[in-house]
């Protein structure tokens, strides 16, 4: 496994945070209407979107599209943990998508975990957003996921690896919207103080700017005439 430099360094009394190297490829699968593969360090998630398409009568909603999210683990069948993650991703996507523009239709998002090395939920969110963009679905805002871990000494580590998550006291994942940089989704593990929470939110908001910058660049690269 590649070693990673310590992510929390004291610089003039202020902590410096970092995101692992990340990347994304869109439109890599031929069958789905939109697809993406998002990589954060060694963590990698593949996403595929189908829709707007025909919906089962039992799931039809008269004034908006029905959103379905499936998360496939790498080993074994999806369990309760995946269901909880699916709920988080689905409700975040629902809030970002303008689903009222496609009433009585289905949107389905499938996420395949390719490698889990920490910050999995945030990687799922980022892959989901990139796949929705690739599918060309109308969205009110973009969203991205940022995971923060608090180590036993109280330092905040952004975008932790699996080992860092294991060693930490608390892990929180936030989805941040691109319009106001506010918290769309939050999922936490472990206990922490209010102050730590607010700090993590502030850090995540900062980190989200970097990710949105990346989104913007990848769209620019894709649609510009000069590569």
């Amino acid at each position: 496994m590649r070693s990673r430099l310590a992510t929390t360094m004291e610089v003039d009394g202020l902590s410096a945070f970092s995101l692992r190297e990340f990347g994304c490829e869109q439109n890599l699968l031929s069958r789905p209407d939109g697809s993406s593969s998002f990589v954060q360090g060694d963590t990698s998630v593949l996403a595929g979107v189908y829709g707007p398409a025909e919906v089962k009568i039992s799931k039809e909603i008269y004034d908006r599209a029905t959103m379905e999210v499936v998360i496939q683990p790498k080993v074994g069948l999806p369990g309760v943990k995946e269901r909880a993650r699916e709920q988080c991703v689905r409700e975040t996507c629902e809030a970002a998508l303008l689903s009222t523009l496609h009433p009585r239709s289905s949107l389905s998002l499938v996420l395949q975990v390719v490698h889990d090395d920490g910050s999995l939920l945030s990687c799922c969110l980022n892959a989901a957003c990139m796949a929705l963009m690739d599918a060309g679905l109308p969205m009110g805002c973009l969203f991205c996921g940022v995971t923060c871990a608090i180590d036993p000494e109280g330092h905040i580590v952004t975008d932790p690896t699996a080992q860092q998550e294991k060693d930490s006291r608390a892990v929180m994942t936030f989805a941040i919207d691109s319009a106001q940089h506010r918290v769309m989704m939050s999922s936490t593990k472990g206990s922490f103080s209010v102050n730590e929470l607010q700090q993590c939110i502030a850090v995540s908001q900062r980190a989200s700017e970097k990710i949105f910058q990346f989104y913007r660049e990848s769209v620019r690269r894709r649609y510009s005439k000069t590569v």
């Binding site: 988080c88 809030a95 506010r182 922490f192 103080s193 929470l197 607010q198």
Partner: peptide, 26 residues
């Protein structure tokens, strides 16, 4: 918990909230 420590902040998506609003909720 009783020591005013947060154990969970579970928001499964939906519209966004500012950190001030979150603070009120806490």
């Amino acid at each position: 918990d009783e020591n005013e420590t947060l154990c969970m902040l579970h928001k499964p998506g939906g519209t966004s909230l500012s950190s001030e609003k979150l603070q009120d909720c806490i």
